[in-house]
Amino acid sequence: MEPAPQRRSIRYQGYDYSMAGYYALTICARNKAHLFGSLATGGTIHPSPLGEIVLAELTAIPSYFPAARLDTWVLMPNHLHCILVLTRNRAVSVSTIVGSFKSRCFARWRKQIVAGGQPAPPSCWQRDYYEHIIRDARELEGYRKYILENPNRW
């Protein structure tokens, strides 16, 4: 039997994602389904029960990881954009934070679904996530603007 092919990493080769800095993240719902809520006129999200969990767990990240904070974020019907800030070198990695966040969200959502007598889905998240290492103030402002204007482009 042949070994399974290795998945190609979408991370920047050789970069240490536990270094202090700003990281723009996009985390998508499984199959890009509209699981997190709906957008009303004016770009305000009406979160679903899962969307409420995602928002609660997102804002709780600094309590789980004191070397991390959130800069700017927006929850969309099928994805989340945020700027994650690591404040200390090698205290925690971006992948550890994202993995923990996704696990906590899914565990809480799964518990609600099972308690309601429904079968549990395999996940609420797309595999992996997208990130960009923000290198300077101009990029940071560009990502902040992109995130805040995202609902208007929906």
Rank of each mutant, 00 (worst) to 15 (best):
M1T: 15
A4F: 15
Q6T: 12
R8V: 14
S9H: 12
S9C: 13
R11E: 02
Y12K: 14
G14W: 05
Y15N: 00
Y17V: 00
S18T: 05
A20V: 12
G21L: 04
Y23E: 11
Y23I: 08
L25N: 01
T26N: 05
R30D: 05
N31I: 01
K32P: 05
A33S: 14
H34F: 14
L35A: 05
L35P: 06
F36E: 10
F36C: 15
F36G: 13
S38W: 08
S38G: 12
A40H: 15
T41E: 15
T41S: 14
H46S: 11
H46Y: 10
P47W: 07
S48T: 03
L50F: 13
G51R: 03
E52D: 12
E52T: 07
I53M: 08
I53P: 08
L55N: 11
L55P: 03
A56P: 08
E57S: 06
L58E: 09
L58P: 04
T59K: 14
S63M: 01
Y64C: 06
Y64S: 03
F65T: 06
P66G: 03
A68F: 06
T72Y: 03
L75Q: 11
N78C: 09
L80V: 14
L80F: 11
I83A: 05
I83Y: 03
I83G: 04
L84A: 03
N89L: 09
N89T: 08
N89G: 09
A91Q: 11
S95N: 09
T96I: 11
T96K: 14
I97Q: 01
V98Y: 04
V98C: 02
V98P: 01
V98Q: 02
S100R: 06
S103F: 09
W109D: 05
W109G: 03
R110I: 04
R110P: 04
K111Y: 15
Q112C: 11
V114M: 03
V114K: 02
P119Q: 12
P119M: 13
W125M: 06
W125F: 07
Q126N: 09
R127D: 10
D128P: 00
D128V: 00
D128F: 00
D128M: 03
Y129L: 07
Y129E: 01
Y130S: 08
H132V: 04
I134D: 06
I134Y: 05
D136G: 14
A137P: 00
A137M: 07
R138V: 15
E139P: 03
L140T: 05
E141R: 14
E141W: 09
Y143M: 09
Y143W: 12
Y143H: 10
L148W: 10
